[in-house]
Simulated assay, not measured.
Amino acid sequence: MPIMRDATTAPTPSPRWTQDAALALVFLTRLPFPPLGPLNGPLAEGTSARAMGWFPLVGALVGLVGGAVFAAAAALHLPPLAGALLALAATVRMTGGLHEDGAADVADGFGGGRDPARKLEIMRDSRVGSYGVLALVFSVGIRAAALAALPVPAAVAAMVAAGALSRCGLAAMARVLSPARRDGLAAAQGKPAMTTVLLALVFGIAVAAAVLGGLALPTLAASLLAVAAVATLARKQIGGQTGDVFGAAQQVAEAAVLLTLSALNGAAA
């Protein structure tokens, strides 16, 4: 006779690593996620912070979709720049413009605020100002131009690598910088452990090495320098990090990776 379970019994928690990976996917993308699975049931303590270790793999998936769109546009004989813009539009669709929104808020806050408190207030305003608009224009324009300069196979690899590498330094930034606010997403997430920082770096390096080979190291360096630059600026401007700062760091790092690969491809030509 089968054993009947009480309907009120809590579901068995999934293994911790599957919860971490699933939360990273849910947080960074707008992909539909089944209601049952790793996130069904209570989350293990510290899941939000540990999920950052999986950000590079989610980023690689986002980049792969963008690369596929670029390849499809090339197969249809569309101009490279049009293909690049379509590829970036596909990644924005996948992420819901999460990082672009953060970059725009940071540009408005850092550019328009007189002091840290005012800067943080502007960053929370849902309206986009002139600094934010310009940040979006330059972010999309620079990334599209760099991507369009690459041949199709290299562009697909670049999108995958940029997606991973632009997110592999975010856990390190979260560990080094304290939240600039006592409330908000960044404060609630908590500080990731060093093992999470290392996991993110390992995933980022592994993806870059797999698709770029010997170009993985210079692009890794470019991405980490970009994140470090944004972190340094955020510390100076608002005394720490916020969710918007993470978005800005991702955008700057992705542009740095694509520009590096474009420059290396031009030098080798």
Rank of each mutant, 00 (worst) to 15 (best):
S139T: 14
R175P: 07
R181W: 03
A267M: 15
D183T: 13
T47E: 00
R118L: 04
T9S: 14
P13I: 08
Q241Y: 13
Q241E: 09
A72F: 11
A44M: 01
L81R: 12
M159G: 09
G184R: 11
R175Q: 13
A157G: 01
L212P: 03
A103T: 04
P11F: 03
A51Y: 11
M1N: 07
V176Y: 01
P56W: 01
L31M: 13
T91M: 15
L258F: 02
S139V: 11
A180K: 01
F246Q: 11
A206W: 08
S139F: 04
V106E: 01
A162W: 08
V92P: 06
L136R: 12
R181A: 05
S130H: 04
P79Q: 00
G243D: 06
A234I: 08
R181D: 00
L78A: 12
K236F: 11
P80I: 07
L165M: 11
L36M: 13
L264Q: 11
S178N: 08
S130M: 12
V137H: 06
G132P: 10
L85R: 06
V227M: 06
A231M: 03
L220T: 13
L134I: 15
R127M: 03
A90C: 05
P151K: 00
S14L: 03
D6Q: 13
F27W: 14
A10F: 02
P34G: 04
P151H: 02
V62P: 01
A84Q: 01
M173F: 03
A162D: 08
A234L: 08
V69D: 03
L261D: 00
A49N: 04
M4A: 14
H77T: 14
V65Q: 06
V137Y: 07
A49H: 06
G113R: 00
L215Q: 14
A209Y: 13
V137C: 08
I238L: 09
L76V: 09
A268T: 11
G204C: 09
L61R: 04
G204Y: 00
P218G: 04
V152N: 02
W17D: 14
I3L: 14
A44D: 11
A103Y: 05
A82Q: 12
G239H: 10
L28S: 06
A24I: 09
T18L: 13
F110C: 11
L224T: 10
L233G: 01
P153Q: 06
A89M: 12
A51F: 10
K119V: 14
G266P: 00
G37W: 00
T18E: 12
V156M: 12
Q241L: 15
A229N: 01
L215W: 14
P80N: 02
G83F: 05
A75M: 10
P218F: 00
L57M: 14
G66F: 09
A206H: 05
P15H: 06
G46K: 04
G240T: 02
V252M: 12
G109T: 02
A234T: 02
M159T: 07
L212G: 08
M4T: 15
A7G: 08
V252A: 15
A7V: 15
P2N: 08
T260F: 00
A71I: 07
P34L: 05
R16S: 13
L261W: 08
P42H: 12
R143H: 00
Q251Y: 00
A162E: 05
G112S: 15
V58N: 03
G214M: 07
E121S: 14
G96R: 01
A82F: 13
L25Q: 09
A229L: 15
L199P: 08
G239A: 06
D125C: 12
L220A: 13
L177G: 06
